[in-house]
Amino acid sequence: MLQYPNFEIIFSLADEQDPAHSIVTELISLFPSVEAKVIVSKRRDDWNPKVENLVASYAEAKHNWILISDSNVRVEADYLTSLASQLDANVGVMTSAISGRNADSLSAKLEATYLNTFYARWMLLADNFGYPFVIGKSMVFQKKMADRFGGLKTLGIYLAEDYMTGVAMKHLGMKIVLSRKPVIQHLSKINFKSFWARHLRWGRMRKAHAPFVFLTEPFASSLGSIIFAAPFLSFYAPGLVFKFLCFHFFSWGLCDFILAKKMDPKTNFTFLFSWILRELSAFPMWIHILMGNSVSWRGKNVSLEAWGVISPGRRA
């Protein structure tokens, strides 16, 4: 049970036939003291599927602070207390890094490594440089501020509604804050196809919204960054190449291990295997991202125009 004095929960569903409908209805009846309701939204083909799912709930929300939390986020009892303690009137949106945990398959372990190293690192970097890198898996924002850019419905044309929330809040002079505590995503078993599709979508969103940053990504891996050093070393100090490579991969891996351990305290030596897979898969993934502008998400194939705008009426 969430420990917080005053809140309401709105379960936003895209379809009444969704199996989650009966589960949340039962859940609501089990906790009559908690103010909660289910809202089923209408679909619009040319909109971001997550926004179309949430827009009716947004209109119904009673309080100023809105927390959007995906259904696969596992929260603890102090979730709201912890987030609320980091908010003030100048915060436009608070985002959280995602801690991938409880991976039971190889693809899930790879997913966890992506989340706990690559994404965590970029989020920390963005936070330090004031870049509005917002991930909508768990996102808190002020409704009265969002209303100043037209509310959630304005974001329906973008694939990355979370990133654009950050952009809009920044243009309103509000702070973008990274929560000190990551949110936990329970990974269990996921197959390789859905793992790849998800990171392809995220990557194409990054490419659309921050193309310069995206271009640097291959060099933000242990293999990519060595490309710079290798020619110099082989020319100036050929005898040191092997030692340098050992030091480079060891130090990079150690830093990633420390970060992954922070994100998931249960990280152990098996991390090494999924870390090697991540480093090897990063470049093919980047090439795949580079080669297209369409994504598959929530049962929709969506094609993107420049800057992450969903092509109106054009399904990929």
């Binding site: 850019f149 037209g150 654009m164 952009v167 420049a306 800057w307």
Partner: peptide, 16 residues
Amino acid sequence: LTRATFPLYQEILKSE
């Protein structure tokens, strides 16, 4: 401004 940021710009201008 870009085609992408124009709608946000317009909305913020309207509310401001």
